[in-house]
Design a protein around this nucleic acid. Sequence first.
DNA 1: CGAAGGGATGTTTGCGCAAACAACCATGGT
DNA 2: ACCATGGTTGTTTGCGCAAACATCCCTTCG
Lengths: 351, 351
Amino acid sequence: MSPSGFEARAAQQSPARRARKASMADVARLAGVSAQTVSRVSNGHSSVVESTREQVLEAMRQLGYRPNSAARALKYGEFRTIGVILFSLSSVGNSRTLEAIVDSAAQEGYAITLIPVAVPTQDGVLGAFTRLGELAVDAVIVIMEVHLLDAATVSLPVGVPVVVVDSNGGDRYTVVDTDQADGARRAVGHLLDLGHRTAWHVAGPEDSYAAEGRAVAWRAALEEAGVPVPPMARGDWTSGSGYRAGLALADEPDCTAVFAANDQMALGLLRAFHERGRVVPRDISVVGFDDLPDATSFIPPLTTVHQDFAEVGRRCVERVLRQVQHRRTEPGTTLVPTRLVVRGSTAPPRA
Amino acid sequence: MSPSGFEARAAQQSPARRARKASMADVARLAGVSAQTVSRVSNGHSSVVESTREQVLEAMRQLGYRPNSAARALKYGEFRTIGVILFSLSSVGNSRTLEAIVDSAAQEGYAITLIPVAVPTQDGVLGAFTRLGELAVDAVIVIMEVHLLDAATVSLPVGVPVVVVDSNGGDRYTVVDTDQADGARRAVGHLLDLGHRTAWHVAGPEDSYAAEGRAVAWRAALEEAGVPVPPMARGDWTSGSGYRAGLALADEPDCTAVFAANDQMALGLLRAFHERGRVVPRDISVVGFDDLPDATSFIPPLTTVHQDFAEVGRRCVERVLRQVQHRRTEPGTTLVPTRLVVRGSTAPPRA
DNA sequence: CGAAGGGATGTTTGCGCAAACAACCATGGT
DNA sequence: ACCATGGTTGTTTGCGCAAACATCCCTTCG
C-alpha cells in the first residue's frame, strides 16, 4: 500500500494523457543550471560542485527524469544492444543458449533484442533480418540454420557483425557451436566400450545441422571401430517422435544400445522400451544428448552427452562484441567441447 | 557460394575499418536529390515520381542504406519495443511465456528487449529496472515476483506501462496470469472424483506466488470437500526436489494421490515411486501442473493441468500495448483459465 | 597588486530523421 | 495570355544528448 514506486507516480499525472517525458532541458530549468551540467551529472563526469550536483539530482528525482537512450544512441552511434534472431524458443537447447547469451551480454552492458522468425522459410528469415536492420542493434546472433539465410537477392544489413549458432557456414560467418561430432563420438564410444556389438541411432530432423553432425559422427565412429552400422531412425527432436522410434526399435532383437540425438527423444525411447517390457539398462542401453536438468529424473536417470550451453552463449557474445569493437568480420568456427555424463541408462549387454 | 548477401558486401569494404554507415544524406547525394526525398521513398510516402524513386532505391542499394532507428525513435518518441524483465529462462514456464510474448509482440510490430536479473534480490531487480529506464523501451513486462519490485526508495521509471506475469499485485499493477486456483481445484477435484480419500501436495518454493496460489487452492479444495488435509511437501520446481519429496511420500502408506505443483516435480515423483516399487497409477496417482510437451512421454504419461502460455503471452502484450496507446495505466488482473488433461498417471485407488 | 592558472559552468553544434513549410513546375480553365 | 490548381521536390527546423569550445571567477604566486 505504500505509495512508492511506479503506480503512485503515474497516478499523479493526468489520467487521460501523460505529459511528455522530462528531458534534460526540463531538469536544467528546474535546477537552474544548463543542460550540459545536467548531462555531466547524469554521466558522472567530473567538475560539478557538490551543491550543484545535489540540486540537479533533486530536480531529476522530482521530474522522474530518465536519459533518452534514442538520443544517446544517435549521438554515440551505438545502441549497446545485440539482436538475436531465432526460430523457436521451445527447444530446450535454444532457450538455454539464449539465456546464456543474455547473461553474458548483460555483463558486458549489452541488452538483447529478440527477433522471432515465425515461419522457417526463406521469406520469414529475410523479413526478420530486414527488420533487424532497422532495429536498434549493433550486432546479430543467429540461432538457426544458416542455409535459411542464404537467400540470393535481399540485401542483408551491411556492416553488422553476425555470429551464428547451431549451424555450419564457418567459411562465411563466424560460427560458435557445440562440438557435435565430439559428443556423438563420446556417446558411441561409451556404448562400444561397455561391450555392445554396435549402437543404433535416432537422429534429429534432416534440416538441422546439429542433427546431421551427430548422425554423421555416429556413423563414422561405428565405421572406425569396424562394427556394423545399423539403419538409422529419424525423429524431430520431440519426445513423441522418440517414443515412436522406440516402439520400432524395441522389436529389433539385436538392438541393445541406442544413441538418441537429444534427451527428449531419449525420454520417448525410455517410455517405449518400458511399455514393451525391455528393461533399461538391463536389456537395452540408452544415451542422450544435451543433459537436460531433468535427465537425472528420467527412469532410469539418463546417461547423456553434456552440452555446455553457458559456454556457447559466452563465446557468442565474446566473438560478436570483438567484431563490434574491431569493426570487422572474422569468419571461423569456435567449437565448444562436450562431456559424457554416465548415469543409469547404460550398462554392458547381457552375456 | 553465391556472393550475395552480407558477407560479400562486407568484403568490399576495407577489412580493417569500415566506413560509417550510410545516412540519408549520403543516399541523397548519390541519387542527386534532397534528403527529404530519400525519407519519402524510405517511408513509402506519396508524391515521388517513379523515376526519382528508382534512382533513390538504386542509391540505397548501392550504399547498403538502412534507416537509423535511433534517429527515428528520437523523432517519433517511441521505440516500438517492449522490455521484458525476468529472473530466469530455465523454468520451462517462463521460457514458453516469453516465446508467446515475443510472437505476439512481433505481430504487432514490436520487438522484445530482454533484461535479465542475475540475482533475485531487491538490488538486482532495481538495477535492472533502472537500466530499463534508460533502455529503448516503450513498455515493460515483468515475469517475476512483484514483491521484489516493491522497494521503497528507488524511483522506478515514470510513465512506462508495466504488466506483471506470474505474480500478485493486481491492485497496483496490471497483472496477467494463469488462474492458479482454478488449476489446482481441477487437479484436486479429479483425484477426489476418482475416489481417493484425499490428495497430498508437493508445493513450489515459498517465494513464488504461483506456488502459493496452487497450495492455497489445494488446501481450500480439500477443506471444501470435507476431507482431511495431509501435510504439505515443499519443492523448488526442479525434478530433483520432486524426487526427494517422492521418496518421503512413498513411505506414507495412506498416500494414494499426489498433486505436484509442476510437471518437473511430478517427474521426480514418478521416479521416486518407481524406485520404491509403488506403481503409478495402480498404487498411487500423480497429477502435475503445466502440461509440458514431454509430459506425454513420462512413465506413465502424466495427467496434468494445462497452462495456456500462449494465451498468457498474448494477453500480456495486448494489455501492455493498450496502455501504451491510451497513455495511461490500468491496474487489474486478467486470469487465463486452465484445463485438466487426463493421461495415464491417475486411476481410482485400489479397493 | 596584477597576471597566470585552473576548476566550474554555459553556449554552440551536429548526430539522422521527418514534419512543416516553401518553392517550383506543368497543366487547364477563363 | 494569365492565373489558379495540384503534384513534386527542396529547405528549415527541432527531437535529446554530449563533445568541443568559450566564459567566468576564484585562487595563487611573483
